[in-house]
Design a protein around this nucleic acid. Structure first.
Lengths: 350, 350
DNA sequence: GAACGGTGGGCAATCGATTGCCCACTGGAA
DNA sequence: TTCCAGTGGGCAATCGATTGCCCACCGTTC
């Protein structure tokens, strides 16, 4: 297991943990801590000669400030918490990346929390973030109903915006995709390419976007004259294996669909795999679509037709809303901002 | 772009931001703040009757404590920072997940930082983490030399362990994979399956594991009688496209290798894609191996033979080392712990 | 009945910054 | 000469917890 033996040779650290404070700097510069503070934060003008002395002293001592003390006094931590159902899902990975990037631009740091699809873990993380006095929380709630209480409580304590998934909490901002529009894009595309029947593979309907996507699928397939095959809606979860299993069931039926529409790319990848192993040619015999446009969607064979989400713009918008709510006169909640998806055509459809 | 218009209906929040403090609880329970503190943290026994009163008061007020104030006093934030080259790389995503999971078990939170392959961004994040007084830092340095200064400076201020990649900083702990052993496993496997020649595709040699893997490749291919083809080492970066390009070059040569060994799974996926598009059959005409066993390695076709890393164990070990260094008498640095990789055989080799 | 140890509670200092307020000084206007 | 505004600096309170120390009280033990 451990191939190199551990040999921690102890060496006495010269400075156990250097803790140079604002007073140290002040003393060395021959001024008061107040002045040092004003120089470092430029919160009030300071004489040029004094300023130079302070900066020199700070450099010499390697002073870097104590964010904890500052946060206590200013009541701002320059910190944002993000809670996602699973960081291993590439869509959320992308969302995390977008948010981290946006935050770094503002000099803030990200507390990343993975709720592991578990409302209890999620509640735990939310409580912890509040206790740490983050300036805001971005959350993609795990469950339609079981997440509601914790989300509502958190929103009362700190600016909060829901991203992607949402629970019904009054006066809470939400940012996500227009799921109905997404389904319209997909089904229109399938109708154009000649699909006459379709199935929909998704996860259990315990969260908002899942429900909306199914509704969109039903609405637009009816609208566009695409018939939903018998037992044409399969519920599982957002994994490759789940998609694989669903596809085997659908393809074994005597009412095979022309197209399988999937609620996310992982499911679609499972469908593609099953089709390949069963010798069903995609897109000739079966068209397949995904959702999210994760980076691997373009690497599978055939490359997956899917819907892209503007995650960077969504992250920016989330931060904008958080800072609005952070200011005293900031707008109240209840905003619902949905972005338009973009259809990315690849080889899994005609 | 925004399909639903933003209509933030302002509603005056009843409690702008409730900030119930320990003194509030103390007052309501008719005790001193000290007693409340002792009840909440169980740091000293308290009479059962008083304890009940305090708990009741805390519940009624919804008291949750102020982590900032506590951190200032105790000098512990229960917070760990992690800095990775790119969260979008699935291997690091897995590492992040493992660490987040381990931290949650200890009631700590994770500051996630993405250095975007840029030593300057990396240094920025490290500085910020120090300023926030994290209890420890886990870093996978971007660059062999350019990351060194910032890593060394950080290690002086706070317990720090390097994970996966490493720079040469004295007295710093490192946890990673035994790269030489990994290459031995791969090449032995290839030798067993009859490969007589091979090429190695990797990224620019600007970080430690990359260098070690190349060295291992050379050592073990020589040892096992596998010939390195002409121009058989191709440098690019850790991306699918880079692997694709490298494979096209190697397959166009008149000295085609029997096997292409890749320094990570993304590169290998690119190689597989190129082979497929060029009509080169894998594994019959060409064997391909990856590195890391990212989750998608099993989803591509043919499924990728690769090397798995025990990321959960690595994360646990990292935290153990951090807490050691955190305690006053804790071991000094300089430990290098390398875990043994596991060969995962799939369809891309015979 | 004196001495003593254990228990349970409070006082107040402390962590390291920020900031409202006060004051000294300067130069210019009246 | 007097007054005033503007500038630059310091004092000390403050943010919300934790914790060393002290003390009152109680029951034991010789």
């Amino acid at each position: 297991m451990v191939s190199s033996p551990v040999v921690p040779v102890t060496a006495a650290p010269e400075e156990p943990m250097n803790a140079v404070t604002i007073s140290d700097v002040a003393r060395r510069a021959g001024v008061s801590p107040a002045t040092v503070s004003r120089v470092m934060s430029a919160s009030r003008p300071v004489g040029p000669e004094v300023e130079a002395r302070v900066r020199l002293a700070a450099d010499e001592l390697g002073y870097s400030g104590n964010g904890i003390a500052r946060a206590l006094r200013t009541r701002r931590t320059d910190t944002v918490g993000m809670v996602v159902p699973s960081i291993l899902n590439p869509f959320f990975t992308t969302l995390v990346d977008s948010l981290e990037s946006a935050l770094h631009g503002e000099g803030k740091q990200l507390f990343l929390c993975d709720s592991r699809q578990d409302p209890a873990v999620e509640a735990d993380h939310l409580r912890s973030l509040i206790e740490r006095h983050v300036d805001g929380i971005v959350v993609s709630p795990v469950h339609d109903t079981e997440s509601a209480a914790a989300v509502a409580a958190s929103a009362r304590a700190v600016p909060l915006v829901q991203l992607d998934r949402r629970v019904d909490v009054p006066d809470t901002d939400w940012i996500g995709l227009d799921d109905a529009e997404a389904m319209k894009l997909v089904l229109t595309h399938l109708a154009d390419t000649g699909a006459r029947s379709a199935a929909f593979v998704t996860s259990e309907l315990t969260n908002s976007s899942t429900t909306l996507r199914l509704r969109g699928f039903r609405h637009w397939s009816a609208e566009l004259g695409i018939r939903e095959v018998r037992d044409g809606v399969v519920l599982g979860d957002y994994t490759v294996d789940s998609g694989d299993a669903a596809a085997r069931r659908l393809l074994a039926s005597d009412d095979r669909p022309d197209a399988i529409v999937c609620a996310d790319d992982l499911i679609a990848m499972g469908v593609l795999r099953a089709a390949r192993e069963l010798g069903v040619r995609v897109p000739d015999e079966l068209q397949v679509t995904g959702f999210d446009d994760i980076v691997f969607a373009s690497y599978v064979t055939p490359a997956l037709t899917t819907l892209a989400q503007p995650t960077d713009r969504m992250a920016d918008e989330a931060l904008r809303l958080l800072s609005l709510r952070g200011t005293p006169g900031g707008a109240g909640g209840g905003a619902r901002i949905s972005f338009a998806p973009r259809l990315v055509r690849r080889q899994s459809t005609r």
